[in-house]
């Protein structure tokens, strides 16, 4: 894939989904095994995913709650490597745009440009680095721009106006809006200030706004879709992967996709 088209694929996925919002399932690469995670990604794509967020397991995932943390630990214990997960990315990227969720140390451990080039070669459309806030991201942003993949920033309800402006200005692909102040994981209720948070992000960003963290049920996804351009569901699906493998994940994604139609 030529570099220029990677970011375009994200934009296209947010435009042509035929739903109330684009649906972006999260899966943990290498969980419960490398091949199993590839099957899970395929099941997501076939069940109506518009983009995929593919996690690379990391030893110390500070932004993740217990479900995704445990999946990362299990993937590493089973021997998963970043290289293998990039192999999964390559297979899935032929179906839908894949955005890699990867912690900063894995990207910056050696040379950021080397990692970015490997990701681009594996067909990744973008990177989400949950522990690399805007102030630390300048070098990686220029590396991603050079390789034609999107460095997708995160914003949180606590992000203040001046930062929101700077983040929105430098956003590529989409803005990942963290719905709540906390780590990933299923919640019973959507956070009360979500509409306001999304409105603040939209006011500053030229790219689509997707919302993640705490969204699990179809009804929650539908309500988020009324506010935002994209809906990200993670822990619910990782739990399904643990409980019932690709079939269970596919079923959940189909329900979510149905709720957005």
């Amino acid at each position: 894939m030529s570099p220029a088209t990677a970011v375009d694929r994200i934009a296209a996925a947010f435009e042509s989904h035929g739903k109330a919002a684009a649906l972006m399932p999260y899966l943990m690469g290498g969980f419960p095994g490398i091949d199993a995670s590839r099957d899970i990604g395929i099941a997501c794509a076939e069940a109506g995913a518009d983009l995929l967020e593919l996690g690379i397991p990391f030893s110390d995932p500070l932004a993740d709650g217990p479900v995704i943390h445990a999946a990362a630990t299990d993937a590493l214990v089973a021997g998963a490597t970043a290289e293998e997960v990039l192999g999964v990315c390559e297979d899935l990227a032929t179906r839908v745009p894949v955005v890699l969720m990867v912690y900063a140390n894995l990207v910056l451990a050696h040379d950021a440009r080397v990692f970015v080039e490997r990701a681009a070669a594996a067909g990744a459309a973008g990177l989400i680095v949950p522990d690399l806030p805007h102030d630390e991201a300048a070098d990686l942003l220029s590396a991603c721009d050079g390789a034609g993949i999107a460095l997708v920033p995160l914003v949180a309800p606590s992000t203040r106006p001046d930062r929101m402006r700077a983040i929105g200005r430098d956003a590529r692909g989409f803005v990942y809006t963290v719905s709540l102040t906390g780590t990933t994981g299923e919640r019973d209720e959507l956070p009360p200030g979500l509409a306001e948070t999304v409105a603040r992000v939209k006011a500053e960003a030229a790219v689509p706004v997707a919302v993640g963290f705490g969204i699990a049920r179809p009804e929650q996804a539908r309500r988020v879709a009324a506010l935002a351009d994209g809906v990200i569901v993670g822990s619910r699906l990782v739990r399904a992967a643990r409980e019932g493998g690709a079939a269970a994940v596919g079923e959940s994604v189909a329900e979510l996709a149905e709720a957005l139609r």
Binding site: L62, P133, D135, V155, S158, V178, G182
Partner: peptide
């Protein structure tokens, strides 16, 4: 050094 943490924490660190 630096501040390699989720965005949510940046205002608290400020």
């Amino acid at each position: 050094g630096g501040r390699y943490v989720p965005e949510t924490l940046i205002p608290a660190l400020d």
